[in-house]
Design a protein around this nucleic acid. Sequence first.
DNA 1: ACTTCGATGCTCT
DNA 2: GAGCATCGAAGTA
Length: 207
Amino acid sequence: MTAPLPPAHFAGNPVRIARDLLGGTLVRSLPGHESLMGIIVELEAYDCPRDPACTAGRFHAARSADMAVPPGQWLFWTAHGHPLLQVACREEGVAASVLIRALQPTHGLSHMLNFRPVTRERDLSNGPAKLVYALGLDPARITGQPVNSPELHLLPPAAPLPDEQVQVTARIGIREGRNLPWRFTIRGNPWVSPATPSMDLTVNAEG
DNA sequence: ACTTCGATGCTCT
DNA sequence: GAGCATCGAAGTA
């Protein structure tokens, strides 16, 4: 088993970091219980101030400050009242982050279903807020903790996924910045969120 | 206190 | 794939 990624790993370009994190594992430890684990099958990068989709930089000064924490810290962006799990990137004072958008559960599935009961199992964690609920994460507790915290940490993929397995598209649910290919999903993975991107740069081998 | 908006989720066609 | 419920956060007053 690989070691948890240290905070220093995130002191760089969030686009590159998101790409390389695809296929990694998110581990949520529960005292006295089996850890909840899942493969990260969908990520997005946000990178103020050059990013037109990054509302933190454009007109939410206060939220920008929440996001411009030192790299390698957990943070939550809220949209429509839902918490979205992110890791701060680049350097302190810069609002840049990687957003974890979907998870393929591998361990503790029944426990996750307890946190977030769903009729169809595939709907358990195929969205950024869904996975937060499925893991039973409390933003008040997690925010500001290092990304290699025992409570919640990341394991990198054994090896970076080959390009053929990586689907690159526009990000989901944004107005500006739809031209930027900053969403990464594992091609054909059934746990990817059902949302349809406005742009898909993927070149299919079959044409 | 009130208004607006959205990095969402859910429930229908 | 379209429409709506929803609610936390910012901005304005």
